[in-house]
Design a binder for these strands. Sequence first.
DNA 1: GTCATATAATATGATTTCCGTATCGTACGT
DNA 2: ACGTACGATACGGAAATCATATTATATGAC
Lengths: 160, 160
Amino acid sequence: MTKVPQDARARRKLTNSVKDSVRGMRSELALLNRRISARLELRDGDLDCLELVARLGPVGPSALARAAGVHPATMTGVLDRLEKGGWLTRERDPNDRRSVVLKVRPERVGEVFALYSGMNAALDEICAAFTDSDLLVIADFLDRTATAGHAATRDLDESP
Amino acid sequence: MTKVPQDARARRKLTNSVKDSVRGMRSELALLNRRISARLELRDGDLDCLELVARLGPVGPSALARAAGVHPATMTGVLDRLEKGGWLTRERDPNDRRSVVLKVRPERVGEVFALYSGMNAALDEICAAFTDSDLLVIADFLDRTATAGHAATRDLDESP
DNA sequence: GTCATATAATATGATTTCCGTATCGTACGT
DNA sequence: ACGTACGATACGGAAATCATATTATATGAC
């Protein structure tokens, strides 16, 4: 046994622990999201769609359905719930009268945020335990992972 | 304007960027999970339940339903799909013949893993870009966040 | 301009899922 | 031993999902 392979092994172990931690965090956050959805009397995926509208900005049902990986007809139902709950609005696009533009209702956003308040406060505390440069490293890692997740999703869609 | 408030402001900005990145990553990974579930002909929450069984170890339907925040009767349906797909087994507990023990089928785990292979490879690459000490910091952050998510979920369950 | 075709959103209806409740078998305390 | 609690699932009505059809509008070829 040489010295270098031992380092490589340790390094792989470290990498695997990071990947495990990513999975663990994803799992816990998925669970949290499910409970919050239930509180808002929404289906599981609905909140993800709402977040996607917030993220993508004004967007139409079809584009949103593609982005969310949901059947367009299902999206109609999702949007019915979200609109009825007052979480977003459907407006007709004057330029293309076939299409509809979805916008989150800014005044309601705080209501969703409030349900995340516990998690939010916890995250503030967690961040407080790290140095500025640590936080930069962490944010970098998270962003890269999010981008990789996006790419993996796209690749999956494009393969048979 | 004094110097210290400026630092505090910068710090808050940094913390907020980390929190945004957490949200972004959660959102992308949730999307990826949905597509993978679809590939396996499972419902959205099913894969989370399977992962939970892997995580918790052998467990019964009731305990799993509590952990997943799912109605027990719904869990029966989830398990029917997972069992029919061959992803896990239901065994009777010889000690308590009312109860059933769920176990993931190790030989099928690789099949799920294969669908994550793109993401997995990407994560390896991402990790390769960080130093050992960075990875330790990152894993620590992820674990703390997972724990906080777990606590936030529990708190939500316990409040009215 | 007219017509064919494409596109956006939603309606429709068959199928599946969800979930409150009921049921059945089993364990446990007294 | 008996009553009560508990684990899992069956049952049935309500709701969601999704393939397809429909309606309205836009766009391009001619």
